[in-house]
Simulated scan of single mutants.
Amino acid sequence: MSTAALIESHLTEHLTAVQRLPEFVPFIEDLAKRLVECLKSGGKVLFFGNGGSAADAQHLAAELVVRYRVNRAALAGIALTTDTSILTAGANDFGFDTVYARQVEALARKGDVVIGISTSGNSASVVNGLVEAKNQGCLAVAFTAEGGGRCAEVADLCFRAPSPVTARAQECHLLVGHILCDWVEKAFAS
């Protein structure tokens, strides 16, 4: 495959997935309203995932805490992927499958929104974190690829990115995440 053909195939896959995102407008609007409600009532949004999804979790939490486009008061967004002491102690003492559930147990409160990101939808650490979120009375939201996996089964809401390809799903996750951050920011900007 030539370089041009490789580039074209990536762009075609990306555009095909993104062009399907309008199907998810009701989901995005519903989740955006729930995020605003959570934050306005003093709650917080917790994000987690593994690998590239961990990076997306950190990215979206930063957009809430720092800003997306405009200066405004900081919003309570936490990435559960950043504390190496907690992650390594939890993985060592209880197994990696528990690293997000333990943090959700410790930090989440009823009414918070917990967003677990797993393109396969089957990452045990993400599934367990979502289950614990529901146990804590939080809104458990999954971002997955097209199949949804176990995350879709245990979450209250699931955004199944319209592609089975990990990279394309991650691109959709970030785009939807940015839309949510923009919506939330507009609700708090003065």
Rank of each mutant, 00 (worst) to 15 (best):
Met1Gly: 15
Thr3Cys: 12
Thr3Asn: 10
Ala4Pro: 06
Ala4Asn: 05
Ala5Asp: 09
Ile7Trp: 04
Ile7Cys: 04
Leu11Cys: 07
Leu11Pro: 04
Thr12Arg: 08
Glu13Met: 05
Leu15Met: 08
Leu15Thr: 13
Thr16Met: 04
Thr16Ala: 10
Val18Ser: 03
Val18Ile: 12
Gln19His: 15
Gln19Gly: 04
Arg20Ile: 02
Pro22Val: 04
Phe24His: 07
Val25Trp: 07
Val25Gln: 15
Pro26Arg: 01
Pro26Thr: 04
Phe27Gly: 00
Phe27Met: 00
Ile28His: 02
Glu29Ile: 04
Glu29Pro: 00
Glu29Met: 08
Ala32His: 07
Lys33Phe: 13
Glu37Pro: 01
Cys38Thr: 09
Cys38Tyr: 15
Leu39Phe: 15
Lys40Ile: 09
Lys40Asn: 15
Gly42Met: 04
Gly42Ser: 08
Gly42Ala: 08
Lys44Met: 11
Val45His: 11
Val45Met: 09
Val45Leu: 05
Leu46Gly: 04
Phe48Met: 10
Gly49Trp: 08
Gly51Ile: 10
Gly51Lys: 11
Ser53Phe: 03
Ser53Glu: 11
Asp56Arg: 01
Gln58Glu: 14
Gln58Thr: 14
His59Ala: 11
His59Val: 11
Ala61Met: 07
Ala62Cys: 13
Glu63Ser: 10
Val65Ser: 12
Arg67Ala: 04
Arg67Asn: 14
Val70Arg: 13
Asn71Ala: 15
Gly77Thr: 12
Ala79Asn: 09
Ala79Val: 13
Ala79Pro: 15
Thr82Glu: 08
Asp83Lys: 11
Ser85Glu: 13
Ile86Ser: 10
Ile86His: 14
Gly90Glu: 06
Gly90Lys: 02
Gly90Ala: 07
Ala91Ser: 14
Ala91Asp: 06
Asn92Gln: 10
Asp93Trp: 14
Phe94Gln: 08
Phe94Tyr: 14
Gly95Leu: 07
Phe96Thr: 03
Tyr100Met: 00
Ala101Gln: 05
Arg102Val: 08
Gln103Arg: 05
Gln103Met: 02
Val104Asp: 02
Glu105Met: 11
Glu105Val: 05
Glu105His: 15
Glu105Tyr: 15
Ala106Leu: 13
Arg109Phe: 05
Gly111Glu: 04
Val114Leu: 06
Val114Ala: 03
Gly121Arg: 00
Asn122Tyr: 03
Asn122Arg: 06
Ala124Ser: 11
Val126Met: 02
Val127Ile: 06
Val127His: 03
Val127Glu: 05
Leu130Val: 03
Leu130Phe: 01
Leu130Arg: 02
Val131Gly: 06
Val131Tyr: 00
Glu132Met: 14
Ala133Glu: 06
Asn135Val: 06
Leu139Cys: 03
Ala140Ile: 08
Thr144Tyr: 00
Glu146Trp: 00
Gly147Trp: 00
Gly148Asn: 01
Gly149Asp: 01
Arg150Leu: 11
Ala152Lys: 05
Glu153Ile: 02
Val154Ala: 08
Ala155Thr: 08
Leu157Trp: 15
Leu157Asp: 03
Phe159Gln: 01
Arg160Ser: 10
Ala161Asn: 03
Ala161Gly: 04
Pro162Tyr: 07
Ser163Pro: 02
Ser163Ile: 01
Pro164Ile: 13
Ala167Val: 09
Arg168Val: 12
Gln170Arg: 05
Glu171Trp: 02
Leu174Ala: 14
Leu175Asp: 07
Leu175Glu: 14
Leu180Met: 13
Asp182Gly: 12
Asp182Tyr: 09
Trp183Glu: 11
Trp183Arg: 13
Val184Leu: 10
Glu185Gln: 10
Lys186Val: 14
Ala187Gln: 09
Ala189Gln: 12
Ser190Gly: 13
